[in-house]
Design a binder for these strands. Sequence first.
DNA 1: TTGTAAGCGTTATCAA
DNA 2: TTGATAACGCTTACAA
Lengths: 357, 357
Amino acid sequence: MMSSGKKRRPADRAHKVGQTGTPRIKDVAREAGVSTATVSHVINKTKYVTDITRERVLNAIEHCNYYPNANARTLASGRSNMIGLLVSDISNPFFPELVKSIETAAFERGYNLILLNTNYDAKRASDYVRRLIELKVAGVVLMTAELEPSLIDELARRRFNVVFHDRGSAGEHMSNIALDYAIGIEEAVRHLVSLGHRRIVHVAGAYRIHSAILRRDAFLASMERHLPGVPTAIYEGDFKFDGGRRAASEILAAEIRPTAVVFANDMMVFGAMQEFRAAGLSVPRDLSIIGFDDIAFAALADPPLTTICSPRPEIGRRAVDALMATIERPGEGGVETLIPTYLIVRGTTAPPRASDK
Amino acid sequence: MMSSGKKRRPADRAHKVGQTGTPRIKDVAREAGVSTATVSHVINKTKYVTDITRERVLNAIEHCNYYPNANARTLASGRSNMIGLLVSDISNPFFPELVKSIETAAFERGYNLILLNTNYDAKRASDYVRRLIELKVAGVVLMTAELEPSLIDELARRRFNVVFHDRGSAGEHMSNIALDYAIGIEEAVRHLVSLGHRRIVHVAGAYRIHSAILRRDAFLASMERHLPGVPTAIYEGDFKFDGGRRAASEILAAEIRPTAVVFANDMMVFGAMQEFRAAGLSVPRDLSIIGFDDIAFAALADPPLTTICSPRPEIGRRAVDALMATIERPGEGGVETLIPTYLIVRGTTAPPRASDK
DNA sequence: TTGTAAGCGTTATCAA
DNA sequence: TTGATAACGCTTACAA
């Protein structure tokens, strides 16, 4: 696949293609009757070359079927075109669309994506950071929570460009893409209140995830704004299907049942729906439900889920934008981006039953 | 982030760390009082080194905070530890778990994964193949259909190790991981027949995808085996949600309604369910349904979906195994792997209603 | 406008 | 058992 790295006498390679049959820039240069410098310059458009020689070089490249060696290029130039993307779990439905948009943005800018799935394992995450450093990647996108501060320090010390999601703030080479949870949650509460709901509760995510707390606090703030003094309740969930089920059964067992529930993510809604349905409740007739994230299945559920959208395509695009900014203009510092969330009204919200008002 | 590649006089670098502060093997060697060769050998365990010097080297590495440069290593050794993974659409629910298992298997073997999402675009796919060649990756996993034969030829000519999914057969550096669709489909038909069904139909996938045809033919063969002479029907779908809806409405409009439907994938089942439910049918009371793939939401649906599992964790593991085989033992030829599918009985199958028998 | 050659940070051959 | 050094394939400063 690659040349073997074994030592050969100069004579061996002077006038023929490498032993694996893979042509090098030297072969192209000879074929075109120019120097390797000129070939490099036409490939990289890094210096003016006359049309006639450029043409000759291009033909030689074509003729030799020459593909430049990216490793040699990175080594010599000090520029890499690889971006590392750390995620906790690609099979968590939040991630595929995010990964997709990051990959697309990277592709468009000529960068390749290294996907690193930590599987929520801090040790694995630290292993990955080491590999990224060794690879001298152009930038790192961190979409995971289980990264020790010391690793981030290591990246910072080596001046890697990094972009976080919902964590810390921008720094020298560090950018941050934050979601404005409050906007979407405010819309959700307003929507429910305008439908006539007053007994509204929240099922939160796992509190060790920072955004679970942001969402909960935003919910509480909106409730206080729209229904000051009206009691509410917070159920602690875990962002998972089963956590949704558990929260649902707690809600069903409560002395005073709510008429509407705002969940911290969609996955918990799917779990809760099974429980509610099993208890004979019909959504949205007996209970209004709002999810969070707008994962792909939210629109496909039956009824389709009213939910607050975390716009993953935009998160991905902005993350790559931020990386490019620090890569192309080092010294200007990182970027701080706030992306709004917004409510998507579908089929799981309706006015409360008259008897429930 | 990396050294700049600018030229410096030897004196500049003779006795200090590179200008970016990133230590090189030379710095470690000096610190340990040995040659770079020795440092390399202790890092790679490629030659015996006395315990005492190894200790010294290890300490120096620690002290310098030295991370080897992977690009230089790949260039010099001719060995890469990158694997390219081409998929059509990471947001298609079939893929995340597959990508996850491939990434995990690659990680365990010390390889990194480059994720390339073609988005069903042949031009983008060819661009990606070029990049993989330039990167001199150790291997390529092709989980996409839109790759022109000429690109595969290019990979073959350059002796890249490649593994396909459900396509072609093994060759010199080419392996193939195939799914045995017939097994699972046979189980499915047998299951339905044993429940008492006789009017069983199939909703196929898009025929341009090879596996759609394999699934359909396997269905037909099983029907002939279990219910010889009994009429059946094939509806052409597209593997997508909306295709499932369309097929469902065709089924509802048929003169003779089936009592059971075997779908070519789960996604179409979700579309069809909405249609069936809207028509007042209850699954599985009025109609039994079997899906295919066992995507994550199949188990979470209500009722949970009886489906035929395409074991993605195993596909991924075997794909990486195959790649490792051709990487580590070139000349032995590629691997041909056949992975069985199997039925998972959950909540969407039941005996037909008495009036339907 | 083009060419020469040093240098990128490793690995691996060969000699000591 | 260790060291000196060519080679990996490219970029780029500098000379021509």
